[in-house]
Simulated assay, not measured.
Amino acid sequence: MAGILSVVGTPIGNLEDASPRVRRTLGEADVILCEDTRVTARLLSAFGLRVPLVRCDENVIASRVAHALERVEAGERVAFVSDAGMPGVSDPGQRLVDAALDAGLPVEVVPGPSAVTCAVAASGLACERFFFEGFLPRRHSAQLARLGELARVPGAIVCYESPHRVAATLSSVAEAMPGRRVALVRELTKLHEEVVRDEAAALAAEVAARDEVRGECVIVIAPPTAAELDERRRGAPPVPQSLDEAIDEGLAAGEPKSALAKRLAKAFSVPRAQVYDLVVATAGNDVAGT
């Protein structure tokens, strides 16, 4: 068979969600690139499969791309999976797919569950249009700044969060978007799947009162009303005309360099490392000029 890179979606909890095509593709692979070999080994064991595994997480993917493409070019079938869900969604897998396509190599996507779409469906909120944010910044100030930007999105907003930080993040949502309805979707497809909905402040208080929150969490924020959008647009600051201007504004506001780089990398679709270098250089120039 001709070589191919297969991007394979794996179950996010319930193993019965793996389609026959997912099992067949993994079983036919010459090698599986995965986020954590232990996690994928358990998945393969449940399917009764034995396939060589190679770690390919965010720390090493840059060094794995060239060899993976060589194997595809040599006629091998290379499968790529994350620990759960669709690779490339809030993980670095896009780099491998991008390189394969640039090299003119065949790439196929084998669909599987995704926490994003599952949470949107489970939330019951109006989600005709939604924006997937991934993980919000961890620092409170940077998180509030990003939520302030997202508040102007004319659709629902979907965020990932860890169980240890979800109460604090919900509190930030309540601060940035008071009155918005929010759904916390937890343990998707698992035995204790849960959907809790309320206005942001009430939901934040309910979650904070719990002794413990378990499982990976997805936060779905309802779209703004037309009145809220109009009010925010009237009070919105001018949109920066360039990345340089946005960096100047962030530094002037005292935003931490790392958080600023992460936020602007998303806003301008520029690699984070490149933005961070610009932030550091700009900050250095400002110091030298004083």
Rank of each mutant, 00 (worst) to 15 (best):
M177Y: 04
V280D: 02
E133V: 09
F47Y: 11
V116W: 13
A261V: 14
A253W: 02
L136C: 13
M86D: 12
V110W: 07
A68D: 13
D36F: 04
S172W: 00
L15A: 05
D248V: 08
A252Y: 01
A252D: 13
A74W: 03
G134F: 09
S45V: 05
R95W: 02
A2D: 07
V213A: 09
A202C: 03
I61M: 14
A222L: 03
L278Q: 15
G9I: 15
V185R: 08
E16I: 00
Q241F: 01
K257S: 10
S258Q: 13
M177A: 15
E228G: 03
E216R: 03
L251K: 04
F131C: 15
P271V: 13
A74K: 12
L125C: 02
V158L: 07
L184A: 03
L147M: 08
V220I: 14
K266D: 02
A253Y: 00
P224H: 05
N285G: 14
F268P: 05
F131R: 11
G13L: 15
R180A: 15
P137C: 12
A18P: 03
V173A: 05
R197T: 14
D83W: 00
E255T: 14
R181A: 00
A265W: 05
C127N: 06
V8G: 10
G75D: 13
A222F: 00
V166P: 02
Y160V: 04
R38M: 10
L264R: 10
